[in-house]
Deep mutational scan, measured.
Amino acid sequence: MATVKFKYKGEEKEVDISKIKKVWRVGKMISFTWDEGGGKTGRGAVSEKDAPKELLQMLEKQ
């Protein structure tokens, strides 16, 4: 499965696309949330040019 790689608060992170729940556009950035388990929700953002095609497809479906 595809993953999204991004930096959050200076830390490199990687999230499996299948865990992503919500995707939206903020200017030229793609923001998203995912389920971290245990009732926690993670947040992240990646530039439109660095976003994997699967993430962009999720954005178009909404």
Rank of each mutant, 00 (worst) to 15 (best):
Met1Lys: 10
Met1Cys: 14
Met1Thr: 08
Ala2Glu: 05
Ala2His: 12
Thr3Ser: 05
Thr3Lys: 10
Thr3Trp: 02
Thr3Tyr: 05
Thr3Ala: 03
Val4Trp: 01
Val4His: 00
Lys5Cys: 03
Lys5Arg: 15
Lys5Tyr: 02
Phe6Ala: 02
Phe6Tyr: 06
Phe6Gly: 01
Phe6Arg: 00
Phe6Pro: 01
Lys7Cys: 15
Lys7Gly: 03
Lys7Tyr: 05
Lys7Thr: 10
Tyr8Asn: 03
Tyr8Asp: 06
Lys9Cys: 15
Gly10Trp: 01
Gly10Ala: 02
Gly10Arg: 01
Gly10Lys: 02
Glu11Gly: 13
Glu11Cys: 15
Glu11Ser: 04
Glu12Met: 15
Glu12Val: 14
Glu12Ser: 07
Lys13Ala: 03
Lys13Gln: 06
Glu14Met: 03
Val15His: 01
Val15Asn: 00
Val15Gln: 02
Asp16Pro: 12
Asp16Gly: 07
Asp16His: 09
Ile17Cys: 06
Ile17Arg: 02
Ile17Tyr: 01
Ile17Lys: 02
Ser18Asp: 13
Ser18Glu: 06
Ser18Gly: 13
Lys19Gly: 11
Ile20His: 00
Ile20Cys: 05
Ile20Met: 13
Ile20Glu: 00
Lys21Asn: 12
Lys21Trp: 15
Lys21Cys: 15
Lys22Met: 14
Lys22His: 15
Lys22Pro: 01
Val23Gln: 02
Val23His: 02
Val23Cys: 10
Val23Ala: 12
Val23Arg: 01
Val23Glu: 00
Trp24Asn: 02
Trp24Leu: 04
Trp24Thr: 02
Arg25Gly: 06
Arg25His: 05
Val26Asn: 11
Val26Trp: 07
Gly27Thr: 10
Gly27Tyr: 14
Gly27Trp: 08
Gly27Ser: 11
Gly27Val: 06
Gly27Ile: 05
Gly27Asp: 15
Lys28Ile: 06
Lys28Ala: 04
Met29Gln: 12
Met29Phe: 11
Met29Tyr: 08
Met29Leu: 11
Met29His: 13
Met29Cys: 15
Met29Arg: 13
Ile30Met: 08
Ile30Arg: 00
Ile30Ala: 02
Ser31Val: 10
Ser31Lys: 08
Phe32Leu: 05
Phe32Lys: 00
Phe32Cys: 04
Phe32Gly: 01
Phe32Glu: 00
Thr33Gln: 08
Thr33Tyr: 07
Thr33Arg: 15
Thr33Val: 10
Thr33Cys: 15
Trp34Tyr: 12
Trp34Asp: 00
Trp34His: 05
Asp35Lys: 05
Asp35Trp: 08
Asp35Phe: 06
Glu36Pro: 05
Glu36Leu: 07
Glu36Met: 15
Glu36Gly: 04
Gly37Tyr: 11
Gly37His: 10
Gly37Leu: 13
Gly37Met: 10
Gly39Ala: 12
Gly39Val: 11
Gly39Cys: 15
Lys40Pro: 10
Lys40Thr: 12
Lys40Gln: 15
Lys40Ala: 13
Lys40Ser: 11
Lys40Phe: 14
Thr41Gly: 14
Thr41Glu: 15
Gly42Trp: 15
Gly42Glu: 11
Gly42Gln: 15
Arg43Trp: 06
Arg43Pro: 08
Gly44Val: 13
Gly44Pro: 00
Gly44Arg: 01
Gly44Ser: 08
Gly44Asn: 03
Gly44Glu: 02
Ala45Cys: 14
Ala45Met: 09
Val46Arg: 01
Val46Trp: 01
Val46Glu: 01
Val46Asn: 02
Val46Thr: 06
Ser47Phe: 14
Ser47Leu: 07
Ser47Pro: 13
Ser47Lys: 08
Ser47Met: 11
Glu48Gln: 08
Glu48Pro: 10
Glu48Ser: 04
Glu48Ala: 08
Lys49Gln: 09
Lys49Cys: 15
Asp50Leu: 09
Asp50Ser: 11
Asp50Cys: 14
Ala51Pro: 04
Ala51Trp: 04
Ala51Gly: 11
Ala51Phe: 03
Pro52Gln: 03
Pro52Arg: 02
Lys53Ile: 14
Glu54Asn: 04
Glu54Cys: 12
Leu55Trp: 03
Leu55Gln: 00
Leu55Ala: 01
Leu56Ile: 14
Leu56Asp: 03
Leu56His: 10
Gln57Val: 12
Gln57Ala: 09
Gln57Met: 14
Gln57Asp: 09
Gln57His: 07
Met58Tyr: 07
Met58Phe: 04
Leu59Asn: 03
Leu59Met: 07
Glu60Gly: 09
Glu60Asp: 07
Glu60Ile: 12
Lys61His: 14
Gln62Asn: 10
Gln62Val: 06
Gln62Lys: 07
